[in-house]
Amino acid sequence: MDLGSRDAFARMGTLGIEEEFYVVDEAGRPTAGIDDLIYGSEPPEPLVDRLDHELFQFTIETQTPLIERPENARAELTRIRRALVDHATDHGYRVAAAGLHPSAKWRELDHATKPRYRAQLDRIQYPQHRNTTAGLHVHVGVDDADKATWIANRLRWHLPPILALSANSPFWNGFDTGLASARAKIFENLPNTGIPTAFEDFDAYRRFERRMVETGSINDRGELWYDVRPHTGHGTVEVRTPDAQADPDRVLAIVEYVHALVLDLAERYDDGESPAELRRELLDENKWRAMRYGHDAEFVTRDAEDTVSLGTVVDRERNRLGVDGIRDLYDDPSGAATQRRIHDEGGHAALRESLLLSP
């Protein structure tokens, strides 16, 4: 049973970016492509050991190599994305990105045959059968396991604004859901998802991880799909909240913010700051507001006495952490609003085209 260890947490501030994408045909419609792109051919060098697939045969995932310095994130992200688009083009496919593909109708699409996913489908049934979601996962290295657990606990308060900024999935199964991030709502119907409760320390998290495997609740530690978790294999804090994005600038703004949050919280931990008490119900309410309203969300304050707009949160965090990307992200129309506008103006064909990654 591979459950990771304290020893994995050895480096502070490194980055890793995982992105989930959709394999589509020339018209941008979802199509099975993993047999050609993963099993039937060798990927180009940048994607060796960094290309995998997800539950459906049209969902694919990339991982950047370990990024030692945050200023190198753009170059690494660009290199991986360019290699993916070229690889797909060579095999007659294109690549799209969003939290959900608006034309993906899960009943008409094939699941992957990998035993891990077949076991999930058998155990989870309907919620997993319809899981056509795609997310952005940000890993930040932390040099101590207990520190990583403390940071993950504290990051829970920041997850709803991150989701609201990234909200990019209003359409599902061909219709407008009325949500800014339908992906978040669909995904949290799976077990072991959403914003987790706090863990006292790393040993408490590792005990939980072990018991979930031993009781048959999950097959491996990777099936704890919480919005944030200490990753006991990579030695990182992993934030899994954001919707996938076609625009790399949006990805990098989110990465910059998550990285700054983790470094700030690491300093607070080192300074002996006490952990914050956060009600799970309040966290869930703010997450709901993020997935429903996106950029227009108003969040309940920590004392539950008032609400605060996403714009106010963004300004405060920008000034506090010195990150400009989230202000640009907020000032631009949200992914959800942009998708709705394009759909209203040009229909599904124009919307599908807008989600394609550039060559």
Score class of each variant (00 low, 15 high):
Asp2Pro: 10
Ala8Phe: 00
Ala10Glu: 07
Thr14Asp: 12
Glu18Ile: 05
Phe21Pro: 05
Val24Lys: 00
Asp25Tyr: 08
Arg29Ala: 15
Ala32Asp: 09
Asp35Cys: 00
Leu37Ile: 06
Ile38Tyr: 02
Ser41Val: 00
Leu47Phe: 01
Leu47Ile: 03
Val48Trp: 10
Arg50Trp: 07
Asp52Gln: 14
Glu54Met: 02
Phe56Met: 13
Ile60Gln: 10
Glu61His: 00
Thr64Tyr: 07
Thr64Pro: 01
Leu66Glu: 12
Leu66Gln: 14
Arg69Ala: 08
Arg74Gln: 14
Glu76Arg: 05
Ile80Thr: 11
Ala83Thr: 03
Val85Met: 03
Val95Tyr: 05
Ala96Ile: 01
Leu100Tyr: 08
Glu108Pro: 02
Thr113Trp: 05
Asp122Val: 06
Tyr126Arg: 12
Asn131His: 14
Val138Trp: 15
His139Ser: 04
Lys147Thr: 14
Ile151Ala: 00
Ile151Asn: 03
Asn153Ser: 09
His158Arg: 05
His158Pro: 04
Leu163Ser: 14
Asn173Cys: 11
Asn173Arg: 15
Thr177Arg: 11
Leu179Pro: 01
Ala184Glu: 10
Asn189Ala: 10
Thr193Tyr: 04
Thr193Glu: 10
Ile195Cys: 08
Tyr205Glu: 08
Arg207Trp: 03
Gly216Gln: 09
Ser217Trp: 01
Leu224Glu: 04
Trp225Pro: 01
His231Tyr: 12
Val237Ser: 05
Val239Glu: 15
Val239Ala: 03
Pro242Ala: 03
Pro242Val: 09
Ala244Gly: 03
Pro248Ile: 05
Leu263Asn: 07
Asp264Asn: 11
Asp271Phe: 08
Glu273Cys: 08
Ser274Pro: 09
Asn286His: 04
Lys287Cys: 07
Tyr293Asp: 15
Phe299Gln: 09
Val300His: 09
Val300Gln: 12
Ala304Glu: 14
Ser309Gln: 08
Thr312Cys: 07
Thr312Ile: 11
Val323Asp: 02
Asp331Glu: 15
Asp332His: 15
Thr338Asn: 06
Gly347Lys: 15
Leu357Lys: 05
Ser358Gln: 15
Pro359Ala: 15
Pro359Asn: 12
